[in-house]
Design a protein around this nucleic acid. Sequence first.
DNA 1: CGCCTTGAGTAAAACGTTTTAAAGGTCGAG
DNA 2: CTCGACCTTTAAAACGTTTTACTCAAGGCG
Lengths: 341, 341
Amino acid sequence: MDRPAGRRPTVKDVAKLAGVSQGTVSNALSGMRGVDPVTRQRIDQAVAQLGYVPNLAARRMRTGMTHAIAVMTSMPAAVSAGSSRLGFLMEIAASAAIHALEHNSALVLVPPVADPATALRNVAMDGAIIIEPQRDDAFLSLLRQRGLPTVVIGQPAQDDLPWIDMHYSETAEMLLSHLLQQGSRRIALIIGASQRVSQGITEQVYHAQMQRFGIAPRVIRVPEAEGEEGAYRVTRALLQQDPGLDGIFAPVDAFASGVMRALREEGRAVPGEVRVVTRYDGLRAREERPALTAANLHLDQVAAMATRVLMDLIAGREIAHCTKGPSPSLVIRDSSAVQGG
Amino acid sequence: MDRPAGRRPTVKDVAKLAGVSQGTVSNALSGMRGVDPVTRQRIDQAVAQLGYVPNLAARRMRTGMTHAIAVMTSMPAAVSAGSSRLGFLMEIAASAAIHALEHNSALVLVPPVADPATALRNVAMDGAIIIEPQRDDAFLSLLRQRGLPTVVIGQPAQDDLPWIDMHYSETAEMLLSHLLQQGSRRIALIIGASQRVSQGITEQVYHAQMQRFGIAPRVIRVPEAEGEEGAYRVTRALLQQDPGLDGIFAPVDAFASGVMRALREEGRAVPGEVRVVTRYDGLRAREERPALTAANLHLDQVAAMATRVLMDLIAGREIAHCTKGPSPSLVIRDSSAVQGG
DNA sequence: CGCCTTGAGTAAAACGTTTTAAAGGTCGAG
DNA sequence: CTCGACCTTTAAAACGTTTTACTCAAGGCG
């Protein structure tokens, strides 16, 4: 493999060495068209000798394909930053990267930043996976504007985009049923104030369950931007106001952290006096003391599905508008165990 | 913004509408050369009207710049897969993504896969961050072969690549001193069998410390590929053979999990009878019961440094051969607390 | 034998941008 | 008035690949 000094060898160099035209080299390497076996062998040899590696940028410009997909979320930094939601994003990214590679594509990570427009300006991609977009999501509208194939993990607010169903209502039911089964009878829901699909559905399920058990509903909305701190504040107020509370459902794990801190400082025993559950089983849920009961959302499988659907979409294959993700499973931890359990 | 049906507007369309040449448009948009303010305004208006977005592939082919960097590791799957080491990789990737974006670059995630060659074939990048490479690292040799700027997180085995010092010896000293200070006097080191720089240094530090305290060293090597299971096996054997053991240092967190399981099944109290510490403070360390004392390696800062150095390297700026990362800090958890602490 | 099809190969165009070489114009100094 | 310096603008080249349109030869079939 002797490289012509300075310059990387091109298809032209290979063609010259093999004594054929550029077109034939292209056909031999990646081409659909037939090439005589003996010619192909000459070309292969030239490639090996020169150490030729195709220039991806040139190929991509010519074909229009980027061979890269992106993963992004527009969660506000207060809930997505640090180790909490970032875990959510990263679990999905890791799995998507592996599966993208199986389709000869790279995965680029678009971090949650203040300015989505500049973030996307420098990222080339064939399509995107967007995680739990909100109504009027900035990333989503940019993607639409560029006409990029997009798959939603979670549920789209109003769009007709293909999506992976994460079973929002099933998850909420599972966690609430667990609280009820453990004996909680005055259960509060602490939820984000934004217009997110997951929150709407969770709230609906909560109201239905409370009504079934004849429990007065107690919904507290926290602006997402206030994150853990906001949840801490409202929980302290809530505990003063309603001392008989014996269960809290805080789907956002950053909120759950705030809830736990409030309970500690109010001197309430968990799970003795108050049981707490959250949704995403990430670092926060596991590190809390007592550790939080949560749902295993099987994000690796969800991401694998999203990647496959996106690849189908990009390739122009037929796709299902909605793909059912794996059902969540309950991870019972100390924060909701029956007394003495 | 009225797009000429079907085709995305190009610089040529903008030029025509603004009544100037392509070159002037290019100069106005990204160019270094002067453009008359009034002309520039006409061009800006044309851009807005057409909704022009530069074709990144074309730009990249022309300039030779990809505006993307990659993060990769070649840790064997047994220790890097699942939530343990993957956490390590992802913590770095998340931080690198944010900082890459500040330099107008995307971050692509190269997952640890069986075949590095095919993994890299489809990834275009200006440079790479490689995490704790081993001797004769497959990724590393591919990067070298393609002549790509590379920064090592950890320490390179024999290469002259720029690297971010993660303070291997300082970390090992800190964790061992902690064990000694907590009263442990028969301390075993359970470490990977491979030729990794971090392991060599850790072992050296261990021997020095043991000698200083007049303790007979006890080093057990586990093939990395055996992961948690391997560590479990050797620890059970170790406990039978040396019942007086009162401290275990297992730098690899997957090994620490195996160690804890062995201790449980042998009925040894942690930290009562045996104290355990590990290195990377990830999901595994926090989720273990009792939770493991570990080192906060400040991976976000390490990744930020690596990204900056890589960007300097790509831009051809002067760089330091070795950059000191942040000093690790001790995170004391129950697995090493003094009795009754 | 004549005609059509097929297969292998080639030269040149095309992709959309940035860069280069050159040209036109203005302005000030001599 | 002339010359050079400087600024703006342009036409065309260049980047490295894939695709297109075409040629040429060989072979099958009537």
